[in-house]
Design a binder for these strands. Structure first.
Lengths: 186, 186, 186, 186
DNA sequence: AATGAATGAGTCTTCATTCAT
DNA sequence: TATGAATGAAGACTCATTCAT
């Protein structure tokens, strides 16, 4: 029996299933077969049909997951204007997303660990927005003169630490924000 | 032609080769075949013979790599006594090791990303020593009252940020140490 | 967007693309997908629509390529009347076509190597015209009494030898003509 | 049930089966599965184990088949000393081999049509020995001054013409030898 | 006349592991 | 302690073809 849906819907269905499988079993055990099974599709051929290959699928997964996460971030930071509040908001929001969008976050990490040459794409996603905030803060004299690249990378990596830490996420977020604001200002 | 060496030497030879392969091609592409090829061994059978299975080998790799890194750390921190100096030393030494022992560090990361349920083992390796130092510092009143777990995880993850950053490692280390000392004291 | 052209034009477009693909990558790697890509068509469905199947397409390719080659041959041999000149003209013209119509020639060879039971079709194409000339020459007493089948096949195959020989085609053709004329006459 | 034989024997068994399959169904339909089936082996994995890949197997097949054919040729030409007799012997022997060793010959052709970049290997096999004879004959003044490359290629290709010609092989061989001797001498 | 979507069978290859000395 | 040989399962991917408009 042949069910026909639109190209876009099928792709979304597949990337969605892939994200869940990645989050569950990790990149190494994520296969076309498992994705197909998870999504209840007819055969792995359906994936080959809609994506050029495994790397293509993984890239689509990456973009989908990053897109979702980015949207939420933009929502949560809307309205915040002062630099310090922005940094606190960014950190706390990100830690929150680690839990509310755990699958997407896990999937992004797994794809990054499994596919080669993703560093540039990920760097912008992980530090871009933040680095720009920090630079502005320095120009305005709110932040001291630190190396923005180092600080942005450190904050991004620091946030990752909240994953499977046995600490309440809200506390973790606040503590982390305190830590880095102390490190940024005077 | 059959070459016979001691059990221990063979295991070391194999874990050594595995570390290099892991560092070069990543966990996903690290197979018995590739290790055997890299080490110039006769067949994959030799690995199956000396290790119970892939996980067993990976665990041995992990212990070997962590052991090497730990030894170097202990050497570099010998003689430092004051808390603040200790934290600076720890951070700068770790960043240095990222370059001097890049293979071991990469291998540890790869094994961690590929094998499940390693979190506890890794946590102790990554934060244990540091967390103890921080706790002592708080007791002595040198450090303020932050959450030690959060701080230790953040520092450890922050150090990872130095990998393939396009910044001079020495500068990166100093900048990072400044950052965290500022966050720890008063 | 749906582009509609006449049946005949579409078939020609497809066989034309197929000939180029066959010449470039050989029968084994010639697939509907590759032809479609080469011709800039929308999907392989277009091929299935205009041809009953792969064999049908290949037969159409064969006929198209043989037709083109045959036309050129007829042109080049027009006006030649004496038997010996005819044989020389035939051989030299054929060697020339190997270069001026390399794609068609290559495609014919590839189809022949890939599709079964084409011997009879090809035989007529390869030896038919020539065999008739040779027979006439014998009747007229210009040629000695050799086995026409053997001679015709040998000439046809001999011509193929000019493909990727590192010898100037013009010289190759002349040399070949000398050779066979010597073999045919007294 | 696991049957163990020597490496060499297994390889021979596999190349032998591959030659038969190639001769029967052609390169395009020759798969590991079919070879395994034909040889009565346990799984295609056995082929992958003994050969680096399909190309490696095909190269082994080529060498095996060419070796067999070459041995027979050497046997048949032993004792012949004069140039003209040598050429006749060569041609008639080759035509004979087309029938007595049809499988090997077919297999060689199929591999050649299916695997890329075999031209140099094949050229030596097909024209090498013959070209050397022709050159010697010219030096001795037995043969006229033709282009040796052209002649050798033409003879080799001419011999191929005997395959599935509906003419008695013995007659075909004699006729072909007559033809080329006539073309070579004065 | 054309197309988008789907499909099952088949390709080679790689995997860690086991058998039998 | 070492090994040569063998293996079944699983991997991604390509094939020509068919379904349903």
């Amino acid at each position: 029996m042949q069910v026909t849906v639109t190209e876009a819907a099928r792709r979304e269905q597949i990337t969605g299933a892939a994200i869940e499988v990645l989050a569950e079993v990790g990149y190494g055990k994520t296969s076309f077969a498992r994705i197909v099974e998870h999504a209840g599709l007819s055969s792995t051929r359906l994936i080959s049909y809609h994506f050029r290959g495994k790397d293509d699928l993984m890239m689509a997964v990456l973009l989908a997951a990053m897109g979702t996460v980015d949207e939420r971030m933009t929502e949560r930071l809307a309205g915040v204007t002062d630099r310090v509040g922005m940094v606190r908001g960014y950190i706390e929001a990100q830690v929150g997303l680690l839990y509310t969008h755990a699958k997407q976050v896990k999937a992004i990490r797994e794809v990054a660990s499994g596919v080669a040459d993703l560093a540039p794409v990920l760097a912008e996603f992980r530090h871009g927005r933040l680095a720009r905030q920090l630079t502005q803060g320095q120009r305005e004299g709110v932040f001291r003169e630190f190396d923005v690249t180092v600080m942005a990378r450190t904050i991004a990596n620091g946030i990752d630490g909240a994953i499977d830490a046995e600490v309440d996420p809200e506390i973790y977020g606040r503590e982390l924000a305190d830590l880095f604001i102390r490190a940024c200002v005077g």
